[in-house]
Design a binder for these strands. Sequence first.
DNA 1: ATCAATTGCGTTATGCTATAACGTGTGGCA
DNA 2: TGCCACACGTTATAGCATAACGCAATTGAT
Lengths: 134, 134
Amino acid sequence: MAAQQLTKNQSLVLDALHHADGPLSAYTILDKLRDHGFRAPLQVYRALDKLLEFGLIHRLESMNSFVACAHPDHQHHHDHGVTAFAICEDCGQVTEMHDEAMEERLTVLAGKQHFKTEKTTIEIRGHCQNCTAE
Amino acid sequence: MAAQQLTKNQSLVLDALHHADGPLSAYTILDKLRDHGFRAPLQVYRALDKLLEFGLIHRLESMNSFVACAHPDHQHHHDHGVTAFAICEDCGQVTEMHDEAMEERLTVLAGKQHFKTEKTTIEIRGHCQNCTAE
DNA sequence: ATCAATTGCGTTATGCTATAACGTGTGGCA
DNA sequence: TGCCACACGTTATAGCATAACGCAATTGAT
Ligand SMILES: [Zn+2]
Ligand SMILES: [Zn+2]
Ligand SMILES: [Zn+2]
Ligand SMILES: [Zn+2]
């Protein structure tokens, strides 16, 4: 599955996420796209589902919202392994992190339980560097 | 803050979670406790908030539900560090895991970003040993 | 004992998040 | 041509969470 040609709705949603300075909820996206003809939540959710499938965006479980993937070559659909997110509770900024050692550790953890991993969520809530400086 | 005396509502909610064989949503708990006088979601959410604060239960972000802490000495309020959950998508069973190395790795990751961690969520979705056997 | 502050409680109403169900249109292909 | 897969639009509904109000019980000074 290579660089997928996005539909109009999918492109609009992806653009909205790219131009946002933080994660957006589905309903916030809906409001941003009303001028482009969006009327109902499903138009957003259907696009989000596809974008998630293509690996172009991520869902932040702890805040029911979505961010564009920070991976530079996001046109190429390739799983970029486990992702950890640092989410600032002050400014809302999200940092996407990848770490081989962490991934390895998770594999070991799951292995101990003979658990077959499908998807891993790691979200760190706290305060970013900017918001910590006093 | 030591072994907290729970209120009636808090005890009822905690018992419901202890007797459940998997995570429960707030509304499921509400239904289970209607015979005990519960009528509204807030009665449940308020109890859940306190139980979370006491460290007696955990919230599973990826499924909007709650589980009793599996830590044996859950009467003593002491943070038991970062918790990772393995959630079976077939049978709903949840396994609570603790791993020093994992915790260390996350500390390093956050440190690189000069990020001050408040709370960490780790949830592994997949299939448990029982549900993998064919 | 009394007052004030805190905490829990019950109720009603509301808001936010997500999906079910139905029908339409379009493009690819046997 | 007929069929299928897929995206789309719309309405309705389900599921999750909190705001706001008032009351009651508790605590801890004064
Ligand atoms: Zn990414
Ligand atoms: Zn910040
Ligand atoms: Zn625990
Ligand atoms: Zn299972």
